[in-house]
């Protein structure tokens, strides 16, 4: 565990808390893509099946349990508790366009052809593109609430910090995982356009709006 990895995890935790707080405090999930949240729940569920097979540390276990539980809690808030506020007309990205190609890729490019390893690989690939329905929704409506942009920024920073962590681990531990690195870079690149808008608009006190 190095400082970049820890900061990445904290950023990830913060993103989830920001999202849950936003929905809970405003009693509304307007502007939030339920589809991205379903994909994230699928990501955590398929990746953390190793909770049953290997123990790494209390920290590791606690974080995994939190990520799984919070992702289902978010889905509950969007699709049940506050479903009247869910903006389904703007959440039109087709999940199967992401899930199916990623599933095929996980079967073809993996470290080991075993059920758990293929599911882990699937979750890594899926995570890299799971935010697309949310970004698609923002681009469709042309705007995002400031709190939603804070959520997206924290979520993007999480994988960006993981990249720094991988560089660190490569140099100091000789460790690298090409599947995680390539997927992580793809994931981070998807946020670049958003990062630019966040820095030039949201940090200057303006709402995030896209040029028409």
């Amino acid at each position: 565990m190095n400082v970049f990895r820890l900061s990445g995890d904290v950023s990830h935790l913060l993103a989830i808390l920001i999202l849950l707080m936003k929905i809970w405090k405003t009693r509304s999930c307007a502007g939030i893509s339920g589809k991205s949240q379903i994909l994230f729940a699928l990501v955590y569920t398929t990746r953390y099946l190793d909770l049953f097979t290997s123990f790494i540390s209390p920290y590791n276990t606690a974080m995994k349990v939190f990520f799984i539980a919070s992702s289902y809690a978010t889905i509950y808030l969007i699709y049940l508790k506050f479903k009247a506020t869910y903006d389904r007309n703007h959440d039109t990205f087709r999940m199967e366009f992401l899930v199916l190609p990623v599933l095929v890729l996980a079967f073809v490019v993996n470290h080991d052809f075993t059920p758990l390893e293929i599911l882990w690989t699937f979750s890594i690939y899926l995570e890299s593109v799971a935010i697309l329905p949310q970004l698609f929704m923002v681009s469709k409506t042309g705007q995002a609430e400031t709190i939603t942009s804070h959520y997206l920024f924290a979520l993007g920073m999480y994988r960006a910090l993981y990249i720094v962590n991988w560089v660190y681990r490569y140099y100091f531990e000789g460790f690298y995982d090409l599947i995680a690195i390539i997927a992580g870079v793809v994931q981070t690149v998807l946020y670049c356009d958003f990062f630019y808008l966040y820095v030039t608009k949201v940090l200057k006190g303006k709402q995030l709006t896209l040029p028409a």
Partner: peptide, 10 residues
């Protein structure tokens, strides 16, 4: 090395 990757990250 890339072989035998242990998934110790989240």
């Amino acid at each position: 090395a890339d072989a035998d990757v242990a998934h110790d990250e989240l």
